[in-house]
């Protein structure tokens, strides 16, 4: 066997410098995927700063969240952050970016917050090509309030408000983002955390509106009602996911029978809102 020199016992997690340690353990339930996605986001920020590209600077990152379990992220990051009102993370983020273009603004929030109450803000920020990054934790329901049906709940899935199954069709978030004009669109699951980190890094480096959907287990509400133990949800992600970069956005419905398509679907360049605005109104 190889000989190993054991270094001294360290008790610092590599992300300890970016979290508010006094608030850890956080509120997220055992097996919840939000913490993993949050950690991936922090790692991507760290990597961006380490490259020194694009003038990345920790003091210039801001995290904005709405309301929900996912929305708690803003309260755990040791960077400037805003925990805003329900559905309004994107308007706050837009204001920040317009007022101070040097900031790297990240919206980290849930599917209910971003696509139900906040759905209109999402499509308009994408249409305007506001230069921000939106990360959506999609756990297919309203976790925080006890597991109600969301705009992302699959057909026939059980929630507190759809006890016999959801009769409605869900949004396909990447299709919505693409159709609204986003310049970067990707989807991963919390199990694909390395791809996710690379993707968040790319999205942060992207000039324009970038969007990443991340599938995440909510074992306490969605999982329990749909007879999925947390490890079973992760196994589903492992077995049912197909990585297909550049897939047609219209083929991205989440269907566990057919498989869930992951990857980067859109990565295009076009002028941002500020660039277009300056052209008409800030003529030098």
């Amino acid at each position: 066997m190889a000989s190993v020199n054991r270094p001294n016992k360290q008790q610092n997690h590599p992300l300890d410098d970016l979290i508010r340690k006094d608030r850890i353990p956080h509120i997220w339930c055992p097996g919840c995927g939000i913490g993993t996605i949050f950690a991936s986001c922090l790692t991507a920020i760290k990597e961006c700063v380490a490259t020194g590209k694009n003038g990345f600077d920790l003091d210039k990152f801001v995290m904005v969240s709405g309301i929900g379990c996912s929305g708690r992220a803003a309260g755990y990051v040791k960077l400037d952050s805003f925990h805003t009102t329900h559905g309004r993370a994107i308007p706050f983020a837009t204001g920040l970016k317009l007022a101070n273009r040097d900031l790297n603004v990240i919206v980290f929030s849930g599917d209910g917050d971003l696509f139900a109450i906040g759905g209109n803000h999402f499509i308009h920020a994408a249409r305007r090509n506001i230069n921000i990054t939106v990360i959506c934790v999609n756990n297919l329901n309203y976790g925080m309030t006890g597991g109600q049906v969301a705009a992302t709940t699959p057909y026939n899935a059980k929630t507190t408000t759809t006890p016999a199954g959801n009769a409605e069709n869900p949004f396909s978030l990447p299709l919505l983002a693409y159709a609204s004009g986003a310049t970067y669109v990707a989807r991963w699951t919390m199990l694909h955390t390395r791809d996710l980190t690379v993707s968040i890094n790319e999205a942060l480096s992207k000039k324009g509106f970038s969007f990443i959907e991340v599938l995440s287990p909510c074992p306490v509400n969605y999982g329990r009602r749909n007879k999925e133990k947390p490890l079973e949800t992760l196994k589903l992600y492992q077995e049912k996911s197909i990585i297909k970069n550049g897939a047609d956005p219209s083929e991205l419905d989440i269907d566990m029978e057919k498989g869930i398509i992951l990857g980067k679907f859109v990565d295009i360049d076009k002028p941002t809102h500020s660039e277009k605005y300056d052209k008409l109104y800030r003529i030098e």
Binding site: A2, S3, V4, N5, R6, P7, Q10, H13, P14, L15, D16, I19, I24, P25, H26, W28, C32, G33, I34, G35, T36, F38, A39, S40, T43, M190, L191, T193, R194, T197
Partner: peptide
């Protein structure tokens, strides 16, 4: 283990090693 953990509760570091030379 480090990247899948949602709790910042586990991490690995490289062990200084002299493998397979013995």
């Amino acid at each position: 283990c480090e990247v899948i953990c949602a709790e910042f509760a586990i991490y690995s570091v490289e062990a200084v090693s002299c493998p397979n030379k013995n």
